[in-house]
């Protein structure tokens, strides 16, 4: 009798196989590594952006190169003169922009320049920078803005 009623269920393993867990995690990890864009520059100027309604999103974030324009941040929460920052340094002479942009556009012809300009900056400075961009033939630009209202 005992031979006939042996339990049969014990043979299958009760544990969930965890061997593939690292693979799953690595897959997620690689996804995030690829999509992550780290903040590569430290801001040296204040850029409090204006708000606008009719805005578009830039889909190709890899093509974007930033120009920051705003009052320079000094020690002790004071602000200096309006300056232009490209990458991680302040541009002393606006004529340098021409060369910087020329080299950048050679590397990536479809580059978009995104302006992050402080609300208070006078447009004259912006025009000067734009004139330099035209010299370097980097004509695709974007005025970075906040989104207005809840739309």
């Amino acid at each position: 009798m005992s031979a006939h009623f042996k339990k049969k269920s014990a043979k299958t393993s009760q544990e969930i196989p965890t061997a593939s867990l690292p693979d799953i995690i690595f897959m997620l990890l690689i996804f995030f590594m690829v999509t992550t864009v780290m903040r590569e520059t430290e801001l040296l100027v204040r850029t409090s952006l204006p708000a606008a309604e009719a805005v578009e999103k830039i889909e190709e974030k890899r093509l974007v190169s930033y120009i920051y324009v705003g009052p320079e941040m000094l020690e002790g929460n004071r602000f200096g003169e309006n300056s232009v920052q490209i990458d991680d340094a302040i541009v002393d002479d606006l004529f340098e922009i021409r060369n910087i942009m020329y080299h950048k556009i050679l590397e990536e012809p479809r580059m978009i320049i995104s302006f992050r300009v402080d609300k208070e900056v006078e447009t004259g400075l912006l025009y000067d920078v734009q004139a330099e961009l035209r010299e370097a033939e980097t004509l695709r630009i974007n005025y970075s803005t906040m989104r207005e209202g809840g739309s």
Binding site: F32, K57, S114, E135
Partner: peptide, 25 residues
């Protein structure tokens, strides 16, 4: 651990703005 690090550092907010084309030289 690595996953959490990248999750935290990822910036999801996409840059938006007004796209313009400058006139050529």
């Amino acid at each position: 651990l690595l996953l959490i690090f990248f999750l935290v550092t990822t910036t999801i907010n996409v840059d938006s703005g007004i796209y313009m084309q400058l006139p050529p030289k």
